[in-house]
Design a protein around this nucleic acid. Structure first.
Length: 397
DNA sequence: CCAACCGGGGTCTGCCATAGTA
DNA sequence: TACTATGGCAGACCCCGGTTGG
């Protein structure tokens, strides 16, 4: 799963463009945007002189001079591109200009095109016919070119990684054939575009795997089950069956669920957490267990807490602990917390600011209902206003 | 009228490993 | 044997509001 646009994002200025970086990933593997922008900002793109042979020219094929010139003109970060897919630079038959012309005609800006090539250079090995064909297939699913441009900007790889358009077409047919609607496909394409570049076989494997799970748990409507689970978690088809299997097994063995309970968990509230790496799920659950039992919760209470709101497993260990600590500090009772797991949905900053405001209007968190900590802003504000008025009346009397 | 309950919305890439292929 | 195609992995929330039952 991922994170909302807007709040919580670090915004970096690059010429004529804003790039959003999920702050959570700053130090993770996904800092290409920072590298990209800093290279553009602070470092001129460097490349070896074309005409001069390098010292190790014998072992390293001479790169295509025209290609390098074109890329520089287009604003491509050649260093980055070369690092990602060096093989492309040894080819003589690249179509960078066709690619640019094609994408421009679809409404992509030059900056976006440069960014696409910098991140996925193999894109320029595709022929205009193949590109156009692939684009049209995507357009069968989404309604505008702009939507596709946005997806490409986010994830160039999912569009360009394969040029097997027949496979793409078969995937679309297959997904319809297992009961997904046009709307479902649209959701899949915008959320998990990689699904459509998977081999047909891989998608089949996952669908069949899910159907088998369904049948083995004694439910006789596998089609409905698969549709439900994909709707709840559109990312399922870009996970490995190994991972999903491990997670389902973990849920089953950890909570000793009956077949029926397990079924409704995985195609209901638990669907979202199935694509966690299984290690992550284990760690997260262990942390919840440790934290809550250190606060005096029984095993039974913990089980009930997690099953009533499995989304909690999505929370990182630190975040979960910080939220609990922040509530405990404000005299909120642990029994109140596990009774209202949804309050842990709110960000720490929301929790803190609401607690402060509520204390200010004399709201006693240790005895009063705490569910309003996770209400929508609108409902919460209305309530706060009421509390404020009530308090003033009390003070006046 | 109030709030508990519950479902939904947004949103997942960039990198690496390795079989397959020309 | 260089290069491509493809599978798989780590990573880790927050918010809104309709419905319903008291």
């Amino acid at each position: 799963m991922s994170f909302p646009k807007g709040l919580g994002h670090l915004t970096i200025m690059v010429p004529r463009k804003l790039l959003y970086v999920r702050s959570n990933y700053l130090f993770g593997s996904r800092c290409w945007m920072i590298r990209f922008s800093t290279e553009i900002l602070f470092k001129s793109v460097s490349f070896r002189p074309f005409s001069k042979k390098c010292d190790n020219a014998d072992s390293e094929p001479l790169e295509n001079e025209e290609l390098l010139n074109n890329l520089l003109t287009m604003g491509v970060d050649v260093d980055m591109a070369r690092k990602r897919q060096p093989g492309v630079f040894n080819r003589t038959d690249t179509n960078e200009q066709d690619l640019q012309t094609f994408l421009l005609s679809k409404g992509a800006s030059k900056e976006v095109i440069a960014s696409i090539i910098s991140r996925y250079p193999r894109a320029m090995t595709r022929t205009p016919e193949s590109l156009s064909n692939r684009w049209d297939l995507w357009r069968r699913i989404v309604t505008s070119d702009l939507e596709i441009v946005n997806i490409l900007e986010r994830s160039p790889e999912s569009f360009f990684r394969s040029s097997d358009n027949l496979n793409l077409e078969n995937n679309i047919k297959f997904l319809y054939s297992v009961g997904l609607t046009h709307k479902d496909l649209c959701r899949l394409l915008t959320n998990a575009p990689r699904t459509f570049s998977n081999s047909l076989n891989l998608n089949k494997q996952m669908v069949e795997f899910l159907q088998e799970i369904c049948l083995s748990l004694g439910h006789n409507g596998p089609t409905d089950f698969v549709r439900k689970i994909i709707f709840k978690n559109p990312f399922i088809l870009i996970q490995s069956t190994k991972r999903i299997k491990a997670n389902i097994e973990f849920l089953q063995s950890t909570f000793c669920l009956t077949n029926e309970e397990l079924l409704s968990l995985i195609c209901g509230p638990g669907a979202k957490i199935l694509d966690l790496s299984s290690d992550c799920m284990r760690r997260s659950y262990r942390n919840i267990k440790d934290k809550l039992s250190s606060l005096g919760c029984t095993a039974k209470e913990i089980r009930k807490f997690v099953l009533s709101y499995p989304d909690m497993i999505f929370l990182g260990e630190k975040k979960f602990n910080d939220k609990i600590d922040c509530l405990i500090e404000e005299e909120v009772n642990i029994s109140q917390i596990i009774k209202h797991p949804r309050i842990l949905d709110s960000s720490i900053s929301t929790l803190k600011s609401r607690i402060k405001e509520l204390v200010n209007v004399g709201y006693d968190l240790s005895t009063s209902n705490i569910s309003l900590l996770s209400w929508s802003q609108k409902r919460y504000n209305a309530k706060l206003k009421k509390l404020y008025i009530e308090q003033n009346i009390v003070l006046e009397n």
